[in-house]
Design a protein around this nucleic acid. Structure first.
Lengths: 207, 207, 207, 207
DNA sequence: AACTAAGCGAGACGGTACGTCCTGTCTTCGA
DNA sequence: TCGAAGACAGGACGTACCGTCTCGCTTAGTT
């Protein structure tokens, strides 16, 4: 998470409980207060921890919230439903379920907004959250190719472009539906979207 | 923008210059300082205006920034390029051009994040920004139907669902590409995306 | 009060009612809010008058309050009780009665405090409030001399010194008793004080 | 000054330097700006201290100024000059010397004015400033009785009434001369006043 | 068992921004 | 020309957090 291996050999070791208590308190505070209402002093109080302890581990609000929210996305997985359409639909619904939680909703866009002027934060978001989901696309695509639903792509660079595009379309559409249009991502919408994407992918493949 | 017609007949009228100066100052401050660094006191100073004048017109940072950024989106338009593919591509590139401005980049996600816990702000964003772009989709779709590129949809409710879906896909994908993946929306990417979307639309239409 | 004789020949004449309404509102506000809580905006509202009207007549809070309070002191008078002792006692009690009013209590010391750095205000206080009381001393002294209770003072400069001293002692002691010691000026205290002063005056006269 | 003994065992202790720096800055600001021009923000800046530090120790302008000015009165003392007349004269001159300082002049009346509507402030003034001077009267009186200049007073309640009266007369007269009449307390005036008071005291004693 | 080094809670610290209030001036309309 | 209404620039208010610091105490691993 932060310091990993570099030598802190002597002295009292950091409390492992504190870490988890702080992250849990952060999520709770996000639910209660939203991003802009969240204060580190309040998080520390909720966690039963001194502010010093918190600052010893995280540089600030942004970093703390990224870590607190990242865990939510670990529950995403891609069970094999037997067809590309079913796979797309299930991942869309799972993703939307996470986004419907208030702590994710308020925090995710906010840290992305902060990251527009902060490259280090952008990297942290990418490594902690975004990249951990991207393998779902890779995996789903590989399965579809194995089933013969999608043509095999031999050029790795072209394959990467395709993966990125699909990821932007899925994640972007779901986020926009949830947070901007603020309409529900139910099975109707997921079905419409899946049909659109599937047609797009099985038509002429990207050049 | 705010008070519209209701009767403030007496007293000194509000300065129209001040309004524009404040919005311009807000955009400038966003460029210099980003969302989280932006201060209403600083905006007031830049605009050559007292803080009270600012608070008399806007309830807070969120509302002010929505109005300041909304103007940027008014330059979006849809010239008729003769084909649906060309129309999609041009609107994607225009939208990305706006999002690449630092004032839009930092502000847009931030106010959306704030809006997750504030219905009034959500409405303000929708009416000031989102809905003003949605007509581009409607218009492009009508042209494509006139050209015979897309089937005519008779049920108005189904048509609305389709418009919403297309809008979420386009806007979501472009925003995600720009702000989360933070990769450029160049003609290559726009081409790939357009191909994907076009295939999706001209295949089986949404139920 | 302010403009006196200089020619306001043309245009709408100033409302005479407004003047008295403002002074009354000022006194009422002093009772409710005290000196530091009093604001000119509030006075204007209470008087049913625009702030402009108020500023057209008085330069600020200090000047307004001096005028508002000065009227209270006009009720002081010196009925002839037949002896110097009785005369002193009655004036002490009258003065204390005025000082026990909340509007006088809070305002008087405050404007004196302000006047320490403002010569114009000091003059205004002297001419509006202080000098109007000083004749009571002169008058009482003259009566006492006529009765033979006090020796006649021939040198006018020495007489003035004596008057000033007596005035400072009476006014100072009463004010200090009321506002600093915050104990009542009842007939007991007035009697003690009168005895002390009378002994002081009828002993060896000031050099 | 404020918290005295109650147990704040943990946490960083309050800076003792800050206390003195703030009081000194307050006195300096009073000299430069006067009571009404004095700003807590300005005091904090002058003291090199944050506004919060100031508000942590004092509730507001009034309390701060009382403490800042109280120290000035600690220099009052009563050297034995061998006669009651000399003792009165010296204390009058000392008191006037303090009142002639701009920081005392502007502040003293102002806090008394504020205290008319604030019992807590009145107590603070009494305990911090007034009562610390009253022992001068007691002491001077005792010496005069020892010398045989004044009759011994056996009833302690009558003695207290006398002390209060003398104190109100001395303090009141000097303050009134300085601040209201705004004439100098020189040896001439001090002589006249001492003669008056001495005659008053050595004549018939208060009932 | 004593020493040492870091972690810990508490809370004060110098700062910055907040959103409100009041000041004294101005601009409009109607009397 | 005055008056009411109210917007204006300016500036202080007292509060809330920020991120740092200084305390005294606790908790290891090392001598």
């Amino acid at each position: 998470m932060q310091s990993r291996s570099s030598a802190p050999r002597t002295g009292r070791p950091r409390s492992a409980e504190a870490d988890e208590a702080i992250l849990a308190a952060t999520r709770a505070a996000l639910v209660d207060l939203g991003w802009s209402g969240l204060t580190l002093g309040d998080v520390a109080t909720r966690a039963g921890v001194a502010k010093t302890t918190l600052y010893r581990r995280w540089a600030g609000k942004n970093e703390l919230v990224v870590d607190a929210v990242a865990a939510l996305f670990d529950e995403l997985e891609l069970p094999d439903r037997g067809s590309l359409a079913a796979d797309i639909e299930i991942v869309v619904l799972q993703f939307a379920a996470i986004l419907s939680r208030p702590e994710a909703k308020t925090a995710l866009m906010a840290v992305v907004a902060e990251s527009t002027g902060d490259a280090a934060l952008r990297d942290r978001i990418r490594s902690s959250i975004v990249d951990r989901q991207k393998h779902l696309v890779t995996q789903g695509r590989a399965r579809a190719q194995a089933r013969g639903e999608l043509p095999v792509e031999n050029d790795p660079e072209t394959a990467a472009r395709g993966t990125d595009l699909i990821f932007d379309v899925i994640a972007g559409a779901v986020v926009h539906r949830c947070l901007v249009s603020s309409k529900p991502v139910d099975t109707d919408w997921a079905g419409d979207f899946t049909r659109l994407l599937l047609n797009g992918l099985t038509g002429v493949s990207p050049a």
